[in-house]
Design a protein around this nucleic acid. Structure first.
Lengths: 98, 98
DNA sequence: CTTTATTACTTTGTGCGGCAAAGTTCCTTT
DNA sequence: AAAGGAACTTTGCCGCACAAAGTAATAAAG
């Protein structure tokens, strides 16, 4: 009836779901902006980003111009995985509408 | 930008999200049907149901006609909490559409 | 050149919570 | 009496989120 087991466990965690959602709205997010938006400790944020990176969902770009600035973006695979995750969310939302 | 902290932690867990979604589709679910649909061990399922009951989201009805049969349903408060949770999901889905 | 601040990251520790497996209780059926 | 099924409890394990503190690198301030 529902594909709950298709809910990617890497994405379906509050913190990382927030990250993935933000990354989906813009091509590029600097670390500081993610941190400000999500209000996580930087240790926690870095860890979640690394988890997503290890899963192949997030690309990391490091510049050291002026201040060091690390930026994050969805990979093609990350976007695909997120889209598939969203399909399940849509099923759930539709089920809750009745 | 997004209300990620409005993602009720009691609901936003794979197992319990499955339960809440199923309960939203019908007024009443016997234990055995939930178990068959969600493919959880009964120990695990009972625990999640108790968590939702303790949160005031799920009502428990026990009949002992023929075989014992325990049934579960959303409370008014459970339905309201689920609706609010779904609002956040909708934000996320919309964000992922672009 | 030394000090201070900022960014990004690592390390450490704690506690919670999901999950399975096995055992228990209560009932019905044979 | 015995067997079986429903619902629940207990036990134990493992992973993980999260915070706090410490570290390296660089740049600006004095």
């Amino acid at each position: 009836m529902f594909d709950f087991d298709k809910l990617d466990k890497t994405i379906h965690e509050k913190g990382r779901l927030g990250i993935m959602t933000l990354l989906a709205t813009r091509p590029n997010w600097p670390f500081q902006e993610l941190k400000a938006e999500l209000k996580m400790s930087d240790g926690n944020l870095v860890t979640h980003l690394r988890t997503l990176h290890d899963a192949g969902f997030v690309a990391i770009t490091k510049e050291i111009a002026d201040r060091p600035q690390t930026s994050y973006a969805l990979t093609t695979r990350g976007r695909a995985a997120f889209q598939e995750y969203l399909l399940v969310l849509e099923q759930i939302v539709r089920a809750g509408k009745r």
